[in-house]
Amino acid sequence: MHSVVAIKQVPDTSNVRINPETGTLIREGVPTIINPYDIHAVEMAVRIKEQFGGTVTVISMGPPKAMEALIECVEQGADRAILISDRRFGAADTLATSYVLAHTIEALQKEGPVDLLLFGKQAIDGDTGQVGPGVAARLQVPLLSNAVMIESFDPVARKAVIHRKIEQGVEVIETSLPALLTVEKEIATVKRAALSNVINAARYKPELWTGDAPVPFDPEQIGIKGSPTIVGKAFTPTPRGAGAILSVAEKGLRQTVADALAMIVQANVVTFEHHNGGRS
């Protein structure tokens, strides 16, 4: 059993500050975290390992700092961690990212079969949710997005039953393995890591893969070159602009509420008479 989990280190967007004049991100001092969905993917992989044996490999494309996130995954129980890091990978969009991750997984497949690929539902910095589907398309493995549960898993028959969340409810799918899942947080609640894992992780050094070694990446498909989309411009959203402020302290409760309702009626968004119905 070999599971590969793709994880991304992201800025903790609840702490992101924007320079309002330049519209640029103030990255300085913004703490980074593991993309919240991805740690659940790691947990799921570790549980499968606990049940069926085998190994869990975590991979991440990102700057050297992302080592921290990988080490956190080792704390959580992953056995092997690979950071794919090279200046030339910079400014990759989802197409280029999916290439790098798919190529890495192909390299791992050469070492031995990979049975399960786990991705987060989406990364909270880019919020696209496209990388997982992209990698599945490249590797030509079944894609099960928004997975919330692995109902059964049979590494011998190479089959699994997966629950995925869709608009109408939860869809129960049988799939062949290997398959790629993008996971919701419900897939597995993250357990507090055991001390042994934390001690192992403190000693562990993730592998560093570059654009050339141990496997060469196609320079045409990485970084800016491999990215069809470019950012034309970035700007801070324009606020809607504040409306009237009504203060209970100044006008009293009844009047304030009456004023607010009058404004709503005036804006013609809801008509209260409409609901009069058979009542009055």
Binding site: R240, S247, R254, F272, E273, N276
Partner: peptide
């Protein structure tokens, strides 16, 4: 939130909401 609101009530919601309910229902009842 007041920066995006058309109308903003500064007050305790546990006072404002019941009053809103009262007045809305009042309107409904003509």
């Amino acid at each position: 939130i007041f920066q995006v609101a058309n109308a903003s009530i500064v007050g305790d919601l546990y006072k404002v909401i019941p009053e809103l309910i009262r007045q809305v229902k009042g309107t409904r009842n003509g």
